[in-house]
Each structure stands twice: as C-alpha cells, then as structure tokens.
Design a binder for these strands. Structure first.
Length: 208
DNA sequence: CGTTCGATGCACT
DNA sequence: GTGCATCGAACGT
C-alpha cells in the first residue's frame, strides 16, 4: 500500500522513524527499482541551521514550505541529486532526507546506473549492499533526478510503500555530513544494516 | 589505520 | 565568488 499524504502530515521525527522499513519505489515505463529505507535524517524548520529553510524562503527551498507528501530534490556538490520527503503541515518547512536503502527490486538496472558514474567507469561491479548506500548513490541507482523535485509521493512513478516489513532495531544518532546542527540526534537508522552510509562498519571478529 | 582532495553545478551573498 | 545534507581514490602515519 502506498503511503497517503496524511502519513507525512505529522511531526518530522515521527515520520522519520516510521519511514525505516518502508519501501521507496521508482516506477518508470518498463523499469522498476525499489529499496527498503534503512537510514534517514530529519531537517526541521528555520531554526535548524542545517535545514535548507534556515535562511527563510528562497527559490530553491520552496517545496519545503509546501504541502507534505511531496519530493524535495536538489543538486549537491554539482554531482548528486539528494531526495527528501516533505513533512509537517503546509507552511512548516521540514523534510526527511533518505540516506540509504536495502535494494530489493531492479538490482541489475541499479548496477548499470551506478557503473555509468564517471568515477565508477572501468571499476569492478558495485556489490549489492553498496548500490544504495548514501543519499547520492541511491538517487543514482533509482534514477531520481531534479526533474522529480515537487513530485507527489502518493502515486507512481515515485512513491513510498508500506509492505508490512518489520523495521528491526531502530537507532538515533547525530546527522552526518554537516558542519552545523550536529547537536540534534536526528539521524535514524536500522542498527547494524550493511547498507548504512558514513564511516565503514568494522568487519570481522573484534579482537578478544 | 587516518586525513586530504578533486570532480562538478548551482543557489545564494 | 563562495559553499555546499557527496563520493571515493589517493595519500600520510
């Protein structure tokens, strides 16, 4: 079942927590890619210095002030489209950034898209658990672009579904990749998941 | 193991 | 002109 707009019409931290375990689905013509959301971050209001709404309304951040259940997609570092779901009532600028997915549909297409990135050309194939690890990587894998900005998330070709999956153990931590607003533990993730972004998780047995 | 840095485009000052 | 809600390779220790 596709999440209705009301799902997003709530406090952003609640939406962030509830998005863990939901499925982001990209449906274009004959191609379909999807992944289970395992890592998100909340960006809440003009008082949050890391939120794009911090400077007040501008041309870029307009979707944050709009109705909930809409995509806010912007270009970061000139290279990466980053995907957010707008939350809270209209007029309250806030969103949840999707940072990582566990790929579940269209893995070969994801791998093709990821391999086509300039810095990936001629490199070994991307392992499954890295296909959607990181906010820039998952938009690449799902083919989400700036053209999806302001798109409603309540119908194809871009939507988030509840498939009744159990989210596992949920963990809150500091948001990463930002220089301000790190005092808020507004990053929410499925603990220990292989697709989490950020510093590489320690592999193998820890020394006794 | 850790830190640095280039690629690359656009909104904002 | 400056600074990013990044990525991953290249370096230093």
């Amino acid at each position: 079942m596709i999440l209705p707009a009301d799902f997003y019409h709530r406090p952003t931290l609640d939406v962030a927590r509830d998005l863990i375990g939901k499925v982001l689905v990209r449906d274009a013509r004959s191609t379909r890619t999807a992944g289970v959301i395992v890592e998100v971050e909340a960006y809440i209001g003009e008082d949050d210095p890391a939120c794009h709404a911090a400077p007040g309304p501008t041309a870029r951040n307009a979707p944050l002030y709009g109705p909930p259940g809409v995509a806010y997609v912007y270009l970061n570092y000139g290279l990466h489209a980053l995907f957010n779901a707008v939350t809270e009532p209209e007029g309250a600028p806030a969103a949840v950034l999707i940072r990582a997915l566990e790929p579940v549909e269209g893995l070969s297409l994801m791998r093709r898209r990821r391999s086509r990135a300039p810095w990936r050309r001629g490199k070994p194939l991307v392992p499954d658990h890295e296909l959607c690890r990181g906010p820039g990587n998952l938009t690449c894998a799902l083919g989400i672009t700036l053209a999806d900005n302001r798109r409603r998330l309540t119908a194809p070709p871009l939507s988030i579904e509840d498939r009744g999956l159990t989210a596992g153990e949920i963990e809150w931590s500091s948001r990463i990749g930002i220089s301000v607003g790190t005092e808020h533990a507004w990053r929410c993730s499925a603990r220990g998941h292989a697709s989490l972004s950020g510093p590489r998780t320690r592999r193998g047995p820890s020394p006794a």
